[in-house]
Simulated scan of single mutants.
Amino acid sequence: MLENVKIRLGISVGDLNGIGCEVILKTFADSRMLDFCTPIIFASNKTISFQKNTLGIEVKYNGINEASKAIDGKINVVNVWKEVPNIQFGEATEEAGRFAIKSLKKAVEALKNDEIDVLVTAPINKNNIQAEDFDFPGHTDYLAQELQGESLMFMVADKLKIGLLTDHVAVKDAPAAINPILIRTKVRIIEKSLLMDFGIRRPKVALLGINPHSGDNGVIGKEDNEVLKPVIKEMSDAGHLVFGPYSADSFFGSDMYMKFDAILAAYHDQGLIPFKTLSFGKGVNFTAGLSKVRTSPDHGTAYEIAGKGKADHSSFKEAVFTAIEIYRNRTEHQGLTDNVLQKQRTRR
């Protein structure tokens, strides 16, 4: 069955001056990982050789020119470039940004062409990736353009899943960006993902308030009363298990989050601070709502420890397992859906 199918797992290396290659190589230095997937790294033989030798990580890999030539049971490296990058650990350079984009674009191309089944992305630097042909604040926005569907930044861990109404938006601009259409869209993406990707049939979703204390009935701000509450009531009346808005300051400390399958935060730090506090090292960033599966670790480039061999690869490893699990759940869900549709056609 699906458990025995070797999933082709594509990997973009991120910023070469950060810890991306280190966490990738540390993850697959454990040969048991090859029982779960066939890793396909988008970089170059020389780049990976330099990284593993510098960091002292013992791995063997198979160099290929196309993802379709990957061999099961081996770490595969697609030669995306022939140049030899000038790697300067801990430095944010334009060159590192260019190679991060090259790796990502080639990996996404392979994902779109079904040469890989899922994509796991190592961390990038949002500043040095900016270019004429790459004007995006991060992975999520780029993937939303390239892959079908509406994207949602969904931070997932074992017992905690947090989506964002607004992600890479300045705090001062977040309230104005939140409107009924956005709320309905994000709630539906979360509900569909919980059903299709995590096997939760009747998901319960909590929304956090936009203002402190959810506005205190308009004393601190009107957005919660005028925007959030009407949409929550409308969706609840329509049969959705949607609740809130809840005051964000006490929601996590009181373990209220344990009562829900997912939480929808109003803005980036409102969701990411409690998520990383409760799940750091075990959390995964999943781009929900797209036609393909993409995950990443819950940390950044970590320039301060890059090249020193100190990086913890736990979150990247979790990102690998999460991508595999979601792919299997999604494939199984699609199979069940196809069976139901076939039965309906037969009855007609």
Score class of each variant (00 low, 15 high):
residue 210 I to G: 04
residue 252 F to S: 11
residue 268 H to N: 12
residue 36 F to V: 12
residue 68 S to D: 07
residue 300 G to S: 12
residue 254 S to N: 15
residue 58 E to V: 03
residue 37 C to Q: 12
residue 199 G to H: 07
residue 89 F to Y: 15
residue 284 V to C: 04
residue 196 M to P: 01
residue 341 L to P: 11
residue 264 L to I: 15
residue 192 K to R: 15
residue 332 E to L: 13
residue 212 P to N: 11
residue 141 D to M: 01
residue 313 H to E: 10
residue 241 L to A: 10
residue 317 K to M: 09
residue 212 P to C: 10
residue 11 I to N: 04
residue 299 H to T: 11
residue 306 A to Q: 03
residue 177 A to Y: 06
residue 76 N to A: 07
residue 336 L to E: 13
residue 98 R to E: 01
residue 274 P to N: 14
residue 151 S to D: 09
residue 232 I to C: 09
residue 196 M to H: 13
residue 232 I to K: 10
residue 82 K to Y: 07
residue 345 R to F: 03
residue 90 G to W: 01
residue 151 S to I: 15
residue 53 N to V: 05
residue 176 A to K: 11
residue 77 V to S: 09
residue 162 I to S: 06
residue 284 V to F: 00
residue 138 G to P: 09
residue 196 M to F: 08
residue 258 M to E: 14
residue 289 G to A: 06
residue 186 K to E: 05
residue 44 S to N: 05
residue 131 A to M: 02
residue 146 E to P: 00
residue 277 T to H: 05
residue 287 T to H: 14
residue 65 N to R: 13
residue 204 K to P: 08
residue 319 A to N: 02
residue 47 T to P: 03
residue 210 I to A: 05
residue 21 C to W: 03
residue 265 A to G: 08
residue 25 L to I: 13
residue 3 E to V: 10
residue 328 R to E: 12
residue 71 I to P: 08
residue 216 D to H: 00
residue 99 F to I: 01
residue 248 A to W: 02
residue 271 G to R: 06
residue 51 Q to C: 15
residue 47 T to M: 08
residue 67 A to I: 09
residue 252 F to A: 12
residue 149 G to V: 06
residue 279 S to W: 00
residue 45 N to R: 11
residue 176 A to E: 14
residue 109 E to Q: 06
residue 85 P to R: 08
residue 23 V to P: 01
residue 340 V to S: 13
residue 315 S to E: 08
residue 183 I to G: 09
residue 53 N to H: 10
residue 147 L to K: 12
residue 271 G to V: 10
residue 346 T to C: 03
residue 5 V to G: 09
residue 85 P to M: 13
residue 300 G to N: 03
residue 306 A to H: 01
residue 58 E to H: 05
residue 138 G to Y: 00
residue 212 P to D: 07
residue 201 R to H: 07
residue 46 K to Q: 06
residue 170 A to M: 14
residue 172 K to T: 12
residue 118 V to F: 03
residue 131 A to S: 09
residue 76 N to W: 00
residue 254 S to W: 03
residue 124 I to M: 03
residue 261 D to R: 10
residue 323 A to F: 04
residue 333 H to A: 15
residue 181 I to L: 13
residue 289 G to S: 11
residue 190 I to H: 09
residue 236 S to A: 10
residue 90 G to V: 05
residue 48 I to L: 12
residue 37 C to A: 15
residue 70 A to N: 11
residue 191 E to Y: 00
residue 100 A to F: 00
residue 238 A to G: 05
residue 112 K to D: 08
residue 298 D to I: 02
residue 341 L to Y: 12
residue 33 M to L: 04
residue 50 F to P: 06
residue 286 F to P: 05
residue 32 R to T: 15
residue 194 L to V: 12
residue 194 L to A: 13
residue 252 F to L: 12
residue 71 I to D: 12
residue 25 L to S: 15
residue 306 A to R: 04
residue 110 A to R: 00
residue 81 W to D: 04
residue 33 M to Q: 10
residue 212 P to G: 06
residue 45 N to I: 02
residue 131 A to D: 03
residue 91 E to H: 05
residue 216 D to E: 15
residue 143 L to A: 11
residue 278 L to T: 09
residue 302 A to H: 04
residue 67 A to Y: 01
residue 155 M to H: 03
residue 303 Y to F: 09
residue 257 Y to R: 13
